[in-house]
């Protein structure tokens, strides 16, 4: 069985090597790829990725077969779908870290394209691939995701998934790129803004807080920023090693909680107040009662409403 697999994988590897030697693939922008990799990454970088993908195909042919098979199954899965979309995130995630090259190949280099997939399934496929790559947090995927964020896909949900995936790496140097990608999205900005909070870094919370203070954002955008602050400070996320390693828990969660409580105390928009309260509870920062007390001092006219928030916090299941 093993021997057969190896034998089957060889032609792929050989074929790809031949293509690379001829230089043909470097100029290609496969129909299903998110963007022109050579243009987005530079020819050398793109070539390097192709080489690594070719090597991965030899080392882990199974992942490539599974990704191809999943792609082939999408029309069937799409017919059975529920809700807003098709998700194959968990099957892709089950490939583990070694599967990232097969996913990257599909997404950024050799993807077969939409074909007969309907728009929802096609979106679901690309979103799931981005999510699955992002949750691995492997540094070698970051350049591809940065390119994906810059690419700014015409489908806002795909663009959002790219922002979310890169944000999960938690690299402060990506904050500008992420925030710019979201804020420059125009009418769809809110769809991307709510993904920023998956970059759980102090620099991101600072930018999100500044965005709240900047006039000109419409209500959907402000609601997404408030949601992002909740995501950044998410109490349970901060229990996991991937997030904790930054050492910024106190900075992120306390700043997020404070910004949210300030909005709660000052906004006149009921939907903003509700969203801010929800995010305060998602953050579940232990010093929230003190932050609320301080807000009461600054905004005495909101005492009653802040007391109500304090009561909700006291019985919150997430603290």
């Amino acid at each position: 069985m093993t021997a057969k697999r190896v034998t089957r994988s060889l032609p792929f590897g050989l074929g790809l090597s031949l293509l690379l030697l001829c230089g043909a693939a470097s100029a290609a922008h496969a129909g299903g790829a998110l963007f022109d990799a050579a243009g987005a990454l530079g020819a050398n970088s793109a070539r390097g990725y192709r080489q690594r993908i070719a090597a991965a195909r030899r080392a882990d042919a199974r992942s490539f077969r599974v990704v191809a098979r999943l792609r082939a199954l999408l029309p069937t899965l799409a017919k059975q779908r529920r809700g807003r979309g098709v998700t194959v995130l968990l099957p892709l995630a089950a490939l583990g870290a070694s599967g990232r090259w097969a996913m990257a190949d599909e997404l950024f280099f050799s993807g077969a394209g939409q074909g007969t997939l309907d728009a929802v399934a096609w979106r679901g496929w690309r979103v799931s691939l981005l999510e699955a790559i992002g949750r691995l947090r492997r540094a070698d995927m970051a350049p591809l995701l940065r390119a994906a964020v810059r690419h700014d896909d015409s489908d806002a949900r795909v663009a959002r998934a790219a922002v979310e995936a890169l944000g999960r790496f938690g690299d402060p140097s990506d904050v500008d790129l992420l925030v710019n990608a979201a804020t420059q999205r125009g009418r769809d900005a809110h769809q991307l803004l709510d993904a920023l909070g998956d970059c759980r870094r102090s620099a991101m919370v600072t930018r999100l807080t500044k965005l709240l203070a900047t006039p000109g954002h419409d209500t959907p955008a402000r609601l997404s920023i408030l949601k992002s602050l909740g995501r950044a400070g998410n109490a349970y996320a901060w229990r996991t090693s991937a997030v904790r390693k930054s050492g910024e828990e106190q900075a992120v969660r306390s700043a997020a909680a404070k910004a949210l409580i300030d909005v709660y105390a000052t906004t006149t928009d009921a939907s903003e107040r509700d969203r801010a309260a929800t995010s305060v509870l998602v953050v579940g920062w232990s010093r929230t009662p003190q932050l609320i007390a301080a807000a009461k001092t600054r905004h005495p006219q909101q005492s009653e409403s802040l007391d109500s928030l304090a009561k909700r916090f006291a019985r919150s299941p997430v603290r």
Binding site: R231, N234, Y236, T278, S316, V318
Partner: peptide
């Protein structure tokens, strides 16, 4: 599971949303 950031984050939000 307990060390999966995305599962844990979604679970916290679910707890609050269901509370609402």
């Amino acid at each position: 599971l307990l060390d999966d950031t995305e599962i844990m984050a979604a679970t916290a939000e679910a707890a609050i949303q269901v509370q609402k």
